[in-house]
Design a protein around this nucleic acid. Structure first.
Lengths: 205, 205
DNA sequence: ACCCTCACTGGAACTCGTTCTAGGCTAGCG
DNA sequence: CGCTAGCCTAGAACGAGTTCCAGTGAGGGT
């Protein structure tokens, strides 16, 4: 009945690591073409030279696969952003700048963005751990941009969560054509004001 | 000509209106039981004594159906909220209070909430008009809670959008078990500070 | 060398959203 | 009345995600 799903080998062999990469690559490529719908499990399997069953051993569902794809992409983005950190004086401005930069990166592959974000918000409890990882990555990016010295206060963490919420949701409204880029920009800037509000760093502590 | 999709009869007969109600009712009932997955089109059709094809004539997809269900529920909630408007002195607090009240209402039927919200964020362009309606309803609720006198400024509208983003996204994280209610409350309260921040009201600042 | 385990393969099978078809019913109109 | 348009019904059919199964092969332990 309740099949005890293998907890996925913690240590992958080289061949397995290669398979995993091929799968993620195929997933991203298909997603770039036609978004969520274009990522068809059979096709991902074929394109990565892996049997369908194997694909499901690596990623137990399409949503898992796409969320993992997002993790992958976020890693890259995080590194790219690290290399050219925002320069603005103001923390809020730095965060807004960073997010808009990320936004423009996603704009270049709107279908891929669509697939990943849709998967992310469609994910149910069974994907929580993976979604959480994505969330932590996003948090890390924002905290980096804030460039604060000490550890963030609970207040700041809440502000960061709100910014993340806004970021995801704004992305969705843009992807589904219900908001313009200008509007997204304004909303991002609006929400980033919370940073100044929760951290007038210069004197306290 | 191009795709000849019936634009849905603008004026429904009484029997048709009754059918529509039955469908929405069945949809909500099934959703309350088991969330998104439990809303199966065949079953909705059976439970509302309507042929599958007819169901699809009324709601062209499962997502359309669930978004319409959400419209319906939001209407009710809006009315309920109107009857007992929040009392707090502070606009931000009133909005936070209202949203938490709505939140607790959704808590009572977490599966239903899950189904509706998942549908909402999963919706693609073809559902934009309906999603937009839901968005407008939510906006109306928030603006009501703000209780402002004149028309809202663009700044305020942006703040309201951000609050909506946060609301949806926080709801999702709670539904997928990645955030506690306490956390949602904090985040809602955090984002509501934007209201005071953008308000041209004759108070401080 | 031999065997055993276990991941991988190819493909069938099942579910559920969605579409399509053929026929029946109703309402309005001559 | 009888006719014509639509709307509705029952049910088959199709597509994509997911599961299952029998067989194969390669690495590790003996």
């Amino acid at each position: 009945m309740t099949a005890e799903v293998k907890p996925a080998p913690l240590q992958l062999t080289e061949r397995q690591e290669a398979r995993r990469r091929r799968i993620l690559h195929a997933s991203a490529r298909l997603a770039s073409r036609g978004g969520f719908d274009a990522v068809q499990m059979r096709e991902v399997a074929e394109n990565s030279s892996v049997a369908l069953g194997t694909l499901y051993r690596y990623f137990p569902s399409k949503v898992h696969l796409l969320v993992a794809t997002m993790q992958d992409q976020l890693q890259h983005m995080h590194e790219a952003l690290r290399k050219r950190p925002p320069t603005d004086q103001d923390a809020a401005a730095r965060v807004a700048q960073t997010l808009m930069r990320a936004f423009r990166a996603l704009q270049r592959e709107p279908h891929l963005a669509d697939a990943m974000v849709r998967a992310l918000t469609f994910a149910d409890r069974s994907v929580s751990p993976e979604v959480d990882t994505v969330s932590r990555l996003t948090t890390a990016i924002i905290l980096d941009a804030m460039g604060l010295e000490g550890p963030p206060t609970p207040e700041q963490l809440s502000a960061v969560r709100v910014i993340e919420h806004t970021w995801h949701s704004a992305l969705i409204t843009w992807l589904s054509g219900r908001a313009s880029i200008a509007q997204v920009k304004i909303d991002i800037e609006t929400v980033c004001r919370l940073i100044d509000l929760t951290a007038p760093t210069p004197s306290s502590r």
